[in-house]
Design a protein around this nucleic acid. Structure first.
Length: 525
RNA sequence: GGGCCUCUAGCUCAGUCGGUAGAGCAGCGGACUUUUAAUCCGUAGGUCGUGGGUUCGAGCCCCACGGGGCCCA
């Protein structure tokens, strides 16, 4: 990693190697013959522009209109009709055509809206036209000032009398008519955003989603807070954390795996309807539905329970679909439709598993019997984590997990796997928890929260025994959290929902498409 | 963790049986005053992911490693 090697600029990729620049490794001065032709040419154009007294990156250009404004305002012109209205517009050049004494360029703004610029010899003169041809490349930000017209072919255009580079691009744009390779899309999302409409839409849909969720929660009287991401003790979920180190106190810290224990502290303090939308970090695998960092909504409502949370969750999701797409029957990326409307189905975990197995499974079913069933169906559970609850959940997931296409609440979980959930008010051995399944994956979960600090301590002690047996996902006893709970948290319902997964559910995209800049493994070459 | 597929020009991709590396777009030079993936003429561009091996000869066959994807656990 510290080899002194001249850094050969690659046109296609980002510089992937991470090199600490020291006196030994300081890159050799870049020579123009060391970089690919298209970059070299663009650098020379930049240099020439500046040498001739111009600017390749002016501080501003006198823009008077957004692209959409011009298109809208002059849409009614006849083909070939010209106005005397002078507008100043700017955008990234995505199309260029030179027919000799007349040039066309289309500029695009961040929304993907495009506007045609026309430059004619008669209007700008020989020198300006020649300079345009020799200076402007695909990918540059271009400013043009001129009359608004409609071309003979019927396209609203700016008939330029002046033009200027607004920002010179030193790298060529990819072919805009083909999608980038999936890896490049993710590694160079900024190029993907320039090239691919769906990439742009996804960013905006995600913003709409966050806004919709926040507005729905605010309108119900929930207060948004931010709780620690750096924690001295990770908790609130069964997951392996990322570990980091704080120099000032010389202690290890953990990136949070869930905000739960802090939101409950807030609830103890009287923030009785509280939520947070933020990132969690889990040091586990990465695949098409898991990202090591992911966004999550958690909400707690005093005097609520898992039934009110189900109502809240359904309403948040349906509201988001309405706000983003104007319908609760969404169209997915593969063209299929997905219906989120109505009241969602509810099933019981034990009943649905019993039905699938053709044998009654209850909280009283022995570990031995469950293990036999697991063996028969080749469901493997880490021996360090074997207990009644784990086996029931694994068997359930094996038989039913990906069969739940329509939105479905799965209710009443075994107690071992839900240490933060209160016991069911009438059924022995299960807790008041549901998981929401949508299109075969888990989207959200909610509890009637366990608020009895004595039972909570026992549950933590149980987890500690599981950790001692080698379960590295077992929760640790959080003394500070228990102290808070001993001041009494009001009876509450709590819910957590994956934001990335919600966007996946609403769009049919993979998780790496819903995250703007997902973590990618650096290459070493 | 296991299996399969994949990595070639700036981008997207071909590349036959192992015999001197190809196309489209974009680039460079030229023609064209209504193009919109324009057309025409000319031209440049490659450490074939990396490292080994087999071979007279490897983009192609073998091994290892790296990146990505899909399926399974």
């Amino acid at each position: 990693m510290s080899r002194a090697k001249p850094c050969r600029a690659k046109l296609g990729g980002v510089p992937r190697r991470i090199v600490r620049v020291t006196e030994q490794t300081a890159p050799a001065p870049e020579t123009t013959d060391d970089i690919p032709e298209q970059m070299r040419v663009r650098r020379e154009k930049r240099d020439r522009l500046i040498a001739d007294g111009g600017e390749a990156y002016p501080v501003t250009v006198p823009r008077t209109h957004e692209i959409a404004e011009v298109k809208e305002q002059y849409a009614g012109l006849e083909d070939g009709e010209e106005t005397q209205d002078v507008v100043g517009v700017a955008g990234r050049v995505v199309f260029i055509r030179n027919t000799g004494k007349l040039c066309f360029a289309s500029v695009q703004d961040g929304t993907g809206e495009r506007l045609q610029i026309m430059l004619s010899l008669a209007e700008v003169g020989e020198e300006s036209l020649a300079a345009f041809k020799s200076t402007v490349d695909l990918g540059d930000h271009l400013f043009a000032k001129g009359r608004a017209i409609k071309s003979r072919r019927g396209e609203v255009s700016v008939f330029a009398s002046e033009w200027a580079i607004a920002a010179k691009s030193l790298r060529p744009l990819p072919t805009l008519h083909k999608d980038l390779a999936e890896d490049t899309r993710v590694r160079q999302r900024y190029v993907d955003l320039i090239a691919r409409p769906l990439a742009r839409d996804t960013v905006r849909n995600r913003a709409k989603l966050n806004r919709s969720l926040r507005e729905s929660l605010h309108s119900r009287g929930f207060i948004e807070v931010e709780t620690p991401m750096l924690q001295t003790q990770p908790g609130g979920a069964a997951a392996r954390p990322f570990v980091t180190h704080m120099n000032a106190y010389d202690i290890d810290l953990y990136m949070r795996i869930a905000p739960e224990l802090f939101l409950k502290r807030a609830a103890v303090g009287g923030i009785e309807k509280v939520f947070e939308i933020n990132r969690n970090f889990r040091n586990e695998g990465a695949d098409s539905s898991h990202s090591p960092e992911f966004s999550m909504l958690e909400a707690y409502e005093a005097y609520g329970n898992y039934d009110t949370m189900a109502e809240l969750t359904q309403s948040l999701v349906q509201g988001a679909a309405d706000d983003i797409f104007g319908t609760q029957v969404v169209t997915l990326a593969d063209g299929s439709e997905y219906d989120l409307s109505g009241t969602w189905r509810t099933i019981s975990m034990y009943d649905s598993l019993s039905e699938a197995l053709g044998e009654e499974i209850t909280p009283a079913t022995t570990v031995e019997r469950l293990q036999q069933l697991a063996d028969r169906f080749e469901v493997s559970v880490d021996p360090k984590r074997v207990n009644h609850g784990k086996l029931v959940e694994e068997l359930w997931e094996h038989h039913l997990g990906d069969t739940l296409h329509q939105p479905t609440f799965v209710r009443d979980f075994p107690v071992e796997t839900s240490p933060l959930t209160r016991d069911h008010r009438t059924k022995d051995g299960v807790v008041e928890k549901w998981d929401l399944y949508v299109r075969g994956f888990e989207l959200a979960t909610a509890y009637s929260e366990l608020v009895d600090p004595v039972i909570q301590r026992e549950r933590f002690e149980q987890q500690a025994r599981m950790a001692a047996q080698g379960d590295d996902e077992a929760m640790t006893l959080d003394e500070d959290f228990l102290t808070a709970m001993e001041y009494a948290m009001p009876p509450s319902g709590g819910m957590g929902m994956g934001i990335d997964r919600l966007l996946m559910a609403l769009t049919g995209l993979g998780i790496r498409e819903t995250i703007l800049f997902p973590l990618v493994k650096p290459t070493e070459d």
